[in-house]
């Protein structure tokens, strides 16, 4: 009943782990899969190792958190060792269990994106392009996703380098997300993830007068951003023909339903693990199952885009 499809992949349910949360090693991602998620998106990585910003990198605020981790990653060569173990059997083959592994990658130019994509293509089911991190180094992250031409160039370059489906993860921090979404679709994106964290925002300690994050600014995530994420999904659904993965502040089954109604084919959950731990996935699946049973729907597919009916 919760089964759905995304870019040709069968999923046990519409819940995926969002990039940047418990996605630094295969062990934690396998735990998330065992906890009911139908897929995981890794923490973003690129060609070279990067230690990210100094602490504090994360601060809790009303309605969620602000983070400026700074895209820390061990680099593609090291991270391959983790990718080889996500949802794989003892022989290293992908388990045929309705669960998928998605690699989130970042870079500063089309060549870097395509290099990293080609390196990992055989180890994952899909690739999510992080062109939307609001606290990335110069030339990375949102600097790309705020520019329709650069978005097109990177998406099309990766699309021409790999055979597996690619997803463009977009930033909400633009004037017209629809324009960027269309650029990504024209570039050959097989799906879109909406939205990356909001802002950047900041928090200042009132005793010392200092910004708490070492980077001063960071991306806002968590329940407070859900209405904004939902609105972006709703708008973009009307502009593109490729599936949308909704993400932003999802904490319970009702939030998932809203995202499906707005036009998401699947959703990602990240920050709410702060409140509920990995068990949030099974909990939402159970509640979502109960909701569908008591409704007139018989599948997830029927629920997608309901809010667009007149």
């Amino acid at each position: 009943m919760l089964k759905t499809k995304l870019c040709g992949h069968r999923l046990n349910n519409p819940l995926l782990l969002a990039a940047g949360v418990m996605g630094s090693n295969a062990s934690s991602m396998n735990w998330i899969l065992e906890s009911g998620a139908a897929g995981v998106v890794t923490k973003s990585f690129s060609k070279e190792a990067n230690k990210g910003y100094n602490n504090p990198t994360t601060v809790e605020v009303t309605g969620g958190i602000i983070n400026a981790i700074g895209l820390s990653s061990p680099g593609v060569e090291s991270f391959k060792e983790e990718l080889k173990k996500i949802n794989k059997d003892v022989n290293g083959n992908t388990k045929n269990n309705g669960k998928i592994a998605i690699a989130s990658i970042y870079g500063s130019n089309p060549e870097e994106f395509s290099f990293v994509s080609s390196e990992i293509e055989d180890l994952v089911d899909m690739i999510e392009l992080n062109i939307s991190c609001p606290h990335a180094m110069k030339g990375c992250g949102a600097a790309i996703g705020q520019d329709p031409n650069l978005t097109y160039k990177i998406v099309s370059k990766v699309k021409n380098s790999v055979k597996i489906p690619i997803i463009a993860k977009l930033t909400p921090n633009v004037t017209d997300i629809g324009e960027i979404a269309i650029s990504a679709e024209n570039g050959g994106a097989d799906a879109l993830t909406l939205i990356n964290s909001l802002g950047p925002g900041m928090k200042i300690d009132i005793t010392t007068g200092r910004p708490i994050l070492h980077n001063k600014f960071g991306g806002m995530s968590g329940p407070a951003i859900k209405p904004i994420a939902l609105k972006h999904v709703y708008n973009v659904y009307e502009s593109v023909n490729i599936p949308i993965i909704g993400v932003g502040g999802i904490r319970n089954y009702a939030d998932v339903i809203e995202f499906l109604y707005a036009g998401s084919s699947a959703v990602q959950i990240g920050t709410s693990i702060l409140y509920d731990g990995p068990s949030i996935f099974n909990k939402i699946n159970n509640d979502l199952g109960d909701f569908i049973k008591s409704s007139d729907f018989s599948s997830i597919k029927e629920m997608i885009g309901i809010a667009h009916r007149n």
Binding site: G20, V21, M22, G23, S24, N25, A26, S27, S28, M29, N30, W31, I32, K43, N55, T57, T58, E60, I65, N67, I69, S72, G270, T271, I273, L274, G277
Partner: peptide
Amino acid sequence: YMKCAMGICGQCCLDNTGWRVCI
């Protein structure tokens, strides 16, 4: 090595169980 200490960043997760040292 820890970053958030709130159980979300994934930095301190252990092989092979994925347990977070901070939680």
